[in-house]
Simulated scan of single mutants.
Amino acid sequence: MNKIQLLSLIAAISVLYSCKEENKSKNSLGDTDVIPVKISAVSALGLARSINATGLVTTENEAKYSFKIGGVISRVFVEEGQFFKKGQLLATLNSTEISAGLAQSSLNVDKAQRDYERAASLYKDGVFTLEQLQNTKTALDIAQKAKEATAFNERYSKIYAAADGFVSQKMANEGEVVDPGTPVLSINETRGNDNYLLRVGVTDREWSLISLGQTAKVTLDGYADKEIDAFVFRKSQAADRALGSFQIELKLKLKDVKPAVGMFGKAEISTSQDENVKVIPYSSLVEADGDKAFVFTPDGTGKVKKVPVTISKIDNDQVYLRDGLAGVNEIVISNSAYLNEKSTIKIIR
């Protein structure tokens, strides 16, 4: 290769390299760092206000069954998770001491009865005074009432189910000594499938917007493919000190579903108040994280501004905003992912 050919090759390579570098700095429109975008007007819409909350499944009535008197547990006839019927025997105490107390009270009544009858005879004969007769009658009455109290306690040495339900927790076992009133079984009452609730926590403001009877839609994690109808059944009148929120109970309208107590659920409660929200396309969102996101708005000639927004809900390709875009009329709805506040844009109508 001669010198002239070598110089020509070097010149050709230089031209090609410079063209490549030039193309890197240009976009398809031939403008350096200019990004084509589409914009859309921000629209407002009046929607029925809804409140989103989460909580756990429970039942309408919960109870802790215990013995009225203390003693040694003889039998516990149910296990955790087991269903039972109203009137079913659930647990008993050892009856040895109870039977002895009942027999003793019967003997006391018999003795007091004999004393009273003897005193009545002696009073007729003028040997006993009226006061002595009255004292024996009082002793008889006391013995009879003591027997009634012992018989009452004997009936409550057994635990019977007050309603249909199931055992959520077994707190004591056979052979344990329990004091009067010590919980033995924690139960949840059920009446078919119409006794299940979702207990959710709400804020002060949300609590004031919720009324009894308002409808709700519930989704349980255990049945994610089923949307369950519900309504507001109860409102707490005091904040839960442990959770720091107000409790709302939603009664679930179950059909073929029987959830477990403690199952996690999400609820959307419809309120009677309307809410004015701004609606934007889903494609306009950037850096979405939970209910927080950003959008870009045209700012002057060929520039954009990044604005934070708070999402209320997303419905298909529409986003309803709870907050943000005050005073903003237009937003960028295409190529938002390629923008930053230093970008230059060209609006395509």
Score class of each variant (00 low, 15 high):
Q5S: 11
L9F: 11
I13R: 06
S14C: 12
Y17I: 15
K24G: 00
S25Q: 14
T32C: 04
V37E: 08
V37I: 15
I39C: 00
S40G: 10
A41F: 10
A48F: 13
S50T: 15
L56A: 05
T58R: 03
T58N: 07
Y65E: 15
V78D: 02
E79Q: 12
E80N: 11
K86C: 00
K86G: 00
L90M: 13
N94V: 11
A100Q: 09
S106K: 12
S106T: 13
L107S: 14
L107M: 07
Y116T: 13
Y116S: 13
L130N: 11
E131M: 03
E131P: 00
Q132V: 10
I142K: 13
K145T: 10
A149K: 09
A151C: 02
A162Y: 02
G165R: 01
S168P: 01
S168I: 13
N173P: 00
G175W: 06
V178T: 09
V178Y: 11
G181Y: 10
G181C: 08
I187K: 02
I187W: 00
E189G: 00
T190G: 02
D194T: 03
R205K: 14
I210F: 04
I210N: 03
G213C: 05
K217G: 02
V218T: 12
L220Q: 07
G222L: 03
K226M: 07
K226C: 02
R234W: 03
A238M: 07
D240A: 01
G244V: 12
S245H: 04
K251W: 01
D256E: 15
V257H: 00
G265W: 10
G265K: 05
A267G: 04
E268L: 15
S272I: 08
N276Y: 09
N276M: 08
K278G: 01
S284W: 06
S284K: 05
L285P: 04
G290A: 04
F294Q: 01
F294I: 00
F296I: 05
T297E: 00
K305H: 07
K305Q: 15
P308M: 04
V309E: 05
T310V: 15
S312A: 06
K313M: 08
K313Y: 14
I314H: 09
D315P: 02
N316V: 14
N316Y: 05
D317T: 15
Q318H: 04
L321V: 04
I331S: 02
I331M: 05
V332R: 06
N335H: 15
N340A: 03
